[in-house]
Nucleic acid binder design. Structure first.
Lengths: 353, 353
DNA sequence: TTGAAAGCGCTACCAC
DNA sequence: GTGGTAGCGCTTTCAA
């Protein structure tokens, strides 16, 4: 059933039916009711392509996700992020178009996406320190929001990010409070912006207590279980091994924990491990020290926020770049405290309702 | 730059330019070359909406992914599956439209998807034992492929699935060979088809050795670390505890391993744990017994296969339902053997090239 | 081998 | 309040 048929059935013009269905005010109430009833009866759903052609909007948002050729996998946080974004899209009647692209091969992709015209905006994931995509996208004139920041980019652009620096400095400070001095960091790849920030937070907390960072206790790589295992094993073999680990991923932490176990050490007594992870809440305090930074729900919230921002930018073309820095939920030891205040103002404006 | 402008620039009709660009044979070679050169020069990309309207095909595929309201998350395997599918789409020029839908609320969704007309086919994830969506989709006349099977459905439909039953029976048999008699199963929710099959495989292997299954050693639930931890803790408290665990998810296995550690037992000596997971290959043999069932690469292959099948079904409307049963990569102990032969014939036909 | 013109299903402008 | 009509950018007859 299309508009023409529906209109004919109702003895009305397509114009009127279209107006009734799209909430235009000039339609008589009884007419609108009749139209709506018929639409429901015949299960009428407007054709999205035709609507898009006519309006110039596609009512869908593109998410571009880089896949690491090495790992050949997508980072599991995207699942949560997209879940959050999806909520916003459903409410606003948007679709989500997913494009996976191999790391680094994305340069020419964006132009095609714009010219194809089947998305009204883009969400860009996993920015690197100085990410060339941002300049590219700014030129294209297609609204976009970056999930994460690119530290070396001076231009203003829209982003949503977790406060990685804060989370990791707080976690490090907490370990220092507990008496640790030899604290290991098993980080993600440090040309990724978030990993750089995490390291920065770690270093700043050490510096605050005049602890000299030891390169032998800092490791970075693809966030796999293997990385965690190898890093921890090597470090525990040192003459002066770490007494605590700070890891950048739940998966990495698994490897770390296993290496600790293999070394005959006991978690919480001999060694502390801090990671971010949703599911450690059942642990006894003291046995391990979980830090929740980017919990699943935090990531979901970030996705939601990014989507809201992008939809606002699409609705209000000149609302300018928007930013939103989200504080990670932190649980240090057994104390669930409120998140610390953001260290950057977030000029995020609520969508007009 | 659109077709009209390009044609005007070339002093040709839109018709000819369109034909040249779409590989129609009746275009003179020199003309085609000229057109292609100009298209490249001006970075011409046809508008997908307009093309879709004109051709009746949207050149995109919908993936419908259920999210569990309880967990509020997507299963990480989807990332791998979609990565595989995405390869096929890129090659064929298709886009991927992702729709997340809350478990059970999907009944009416599919009709809308079809009527909106922005996908040419659908891939359905996570079927339950008797899944009403299959009948629904068959009625809609939109090509679809199910990732997984629905055991209680007799109708013929297209699917791609891992051989869960086989993988779990093999793993169980392997544990029995090692001398285990008290083997625990920590499974996913058993109204999910894959979980049911896994349990079936487990039970059949026990039966083959005349071991009576003990309900106290069988647990099912959302595949979380918490489930693994609680299940294992409870079971290890039994008068007659298990000496081996078979788990249905890497995440669950983490909880199991932790409970074992808390109980003061040593993995590989006191207890064996089998799970499926890509990243355990670095473990020393004997310390643990990894089983790789749905490895990341297996899941990716399944995604690829499902996408290929769907594209074929779209190209060849009456090629009938296609099926593909994929054997999981198995690594039992330290032996990496070839996958066993499938126990179902797979009438998957290769795409004509 | 090329071109003119009629749609695809919808919105939006202008007239009544 | 309602309807006629001209596109949106492309493909696809039909004619030349």
């Amino acid at each position: 059933m299309n508009l023409k048929e529906l209109a004919h059935h109702l003895n009305l013009s397509q114009t009127t039916v279209s107006r009734a269905l799209n909430g235009y005010p000039e339609v008589k109430k009884t007419t609108r009711l009749r139209v709506e009833a018929a639409a429901r009866e015949f299960n009428y759903t407007p054709n999205a392509r035709a609507k898009g052609l006519a309006t110039g909007r596609s009512m869908s948002i593109g998410h571009v996700i880089p896949t690491s050729a090495k790992r050949e996998m997508v980072n599991p946080v995207f699942g949560d992020f997209i879940t959050g974004a999806s909520e916003a899209y459903v409410q606003a009647g948007y679709d989500l178009v997913l494009t996976l692209v191999e790391d680094g091969k994305e340069e020419r992709l964006y132009r095609n996406i714009r010219d194809k015209g089947n998305v009204d905006g883009i969400i860009v994931h996993s920015p690197r320190m100085q990410d060339s995509r941002i300049a590219l996208l700014s030129d294209l004139g297609l609204p976009f929001v970056v999930h994460g920041r690119a530290s070396d980019i001076t231009a203003d652009y829209s982003w949503v990010d977790m406060n990685s620096r804060r989370a990791f400095s707080r976690a490090t400070a907490f370990l220092i409070e507990l008496g640790h001095r030899r604290i290991a960091l098993v980080n993600g790849l440090e040309f990724m912006d978030f990993a750089f920030r995490r390291r920065d937070g770690y270093l700043s907390a050490l510096a605050a207590q005049a602890i000299t960072p030891d390169p032998a206790l800092m490791r970075a790589g693809e966030m796999t279980e293997l990385l965690g295992h190898q890093s921890a094993r090597d470090m525990l073999d040192l003459a002066d091994p770490p007494t605590a680990f700070l890891t950048s991923s739940m998966v990495t932490a698994i490897g770390v924990r296993r290496a600790i176990q293999e070394a005959g050490l006991e978690m919480g007594r001999d060694v502390s491990v801090i990671t971010h992870d949703d599911e450690l809440s059942y642990l006894k305090n003291g046995q391990d020290v979980p830090l929740f930074t980017a919990t699943r729900s935090s990531v979901r919230a970030a996705g939601r926020r990014a989507a809201d921002m992008l939809l606002q930018m699409i609705a209000d073309k000149d609302c300018g770049p928007l930013h939103s820095l989200l504080e990670a939920e932190l649980i240090l030891g057994n104390s669930t405290g409120p998140a610390p205040a953001a260290d950057i103002k977030t000029p995020y404006r609520q969508e007009r309702t």
